[in-house]
Amino acid sequence: MNFLRKIVNPKTKEDEEFYYDLKALLNFKPIKLFHYKKAFIHRSLKMTDSKGKPINYERLEFLGDAILGSVIASFLYKEAPKGDEGYLTQMRSKVVSRESLNKLGKDLDLIRFVQSNINQNQIGENIHGNIFEALVGAIYLDRGYNYCHQFIYDQVIIPYVDLQKLENKISSYKGYIIEWCQKTKRKYVFESFEDTGRQVQKHFSVIVYIDGQKIAKGRATSKKKAEEMAAKRVYYSFQNEINDTE
């Protein structure tokens, strides 16, 4: 494929536009554009190389996830010297949660680079976080760890990582509600079912019952999202009682 060639200087108008957009985003000069182009190719295009191997962002996403986790772990180790392993793990999970990464991808407007055969509104919310991780992977392959470290520091740590706020952030409303119910000896049920209706994309609904009473409902494109949505609504319904028990 033409876009997989190694290029130092843009050769086409499309390459040139992509190069300067990337340069403005990264705050450094990208060298091998094909890594970055691959970071935004959705599997729905079904692209393959000459050996039949898939060309999409998923392997870069895996790589970027590992690098992002290591940079955040290093930062937390230095900035929270009194934190034990459990604390550091929990804080890292909050920084690199799917919700946080999706927000990062949205704030950087990475979706504008994505090539896909699926309408962007139907791809799903996680595309934003996935391509952010793929971008980190592309930076690593192009410029190495130090450039990744600086990019993550500038785009993630400085604008988003506030340890005091993170300590108070609830990473999973479902887990929080279950823990609260167990602590206060309340019976809880998360009832889930497929609720696609007339929509093409599959949807799920989750109803939460506390002590036999229906409290809240959540509906989303995945069971996990629907559970979190419903649990969050339960949290706000019982917020005063929850605060009294803490």
Rank of each mutant, 00 (worst) to 15 (best):
H128K: 03
F238P: 00
R186N: 13
S222R: 12
Q90L: 15
T184N: 05
G105N: 12
A230L: 08
Y160K: 05
Y20S: 07
A39H: 05
H128S: 07
G137P: 08
M91G: 09
G212D: 11
K183R: 01
L76C: 12
K214P: 05
D195E: 09
K185M: 02
D195F: 10
M91T: 08
G83H: 14
R143Y: 03
S172V: 10
F193I: 02
S44W: 08
I210S: 05
A39Y: 12
I207Q: 01
G137V: 15
H203N: 12
V234A: 00
F204Q: 01
V136G: 00
P81F: 13
E179R: 13
A230M: 10
F190P: 12
I123V: 13
G105P: 13
I55P: 15
E16I: 04
R143M: 11
L45E: 14
V136K: 03
L104W: 05
Q199L: 12
D84W: 13
C148M: 02
G144E: 12
K183H: 00
R98N: 14
F3W: 11
P10R: 11
T184W: 00
K13T: 00
N130R: 13
M91Q: 14
T221N: 15
R112M: 06
Q115R: 15
N117V: 03
Y87S: 13
R5E: 12
E191V: 05
E194Q: 09
I55T: 14
E227Y: 05
S116H: 09
C181I: 04
N126M: 04
T196F: 01
K223W: 00
K53M: 11
I7Q: 08
D49Y: 12
G105E: 07
L60F: 12
K202V: 15
G86P: 03
A220F: 03
Q90K: 14
H149I: 02
E194G: 00
E246C: 03
G218A: 07
L26Y: 01
K185R: 05
L88H: 10
S192I: 01
E179Y: 01
F62R: 15
I242Y: 04
I207S: 00
K32T: 04
M47P: 03
Y145V: 10
H35A: 00
E14L: 10
P54Y: 11
Q239G: 01
D142Q: 06
T196R: 03
N119G: 11
D15G: 04
I178Y: 03
G197C: 06
L110G: 12
Y140T: 08
D65Y: 14
D15F: 06
K223E: 13
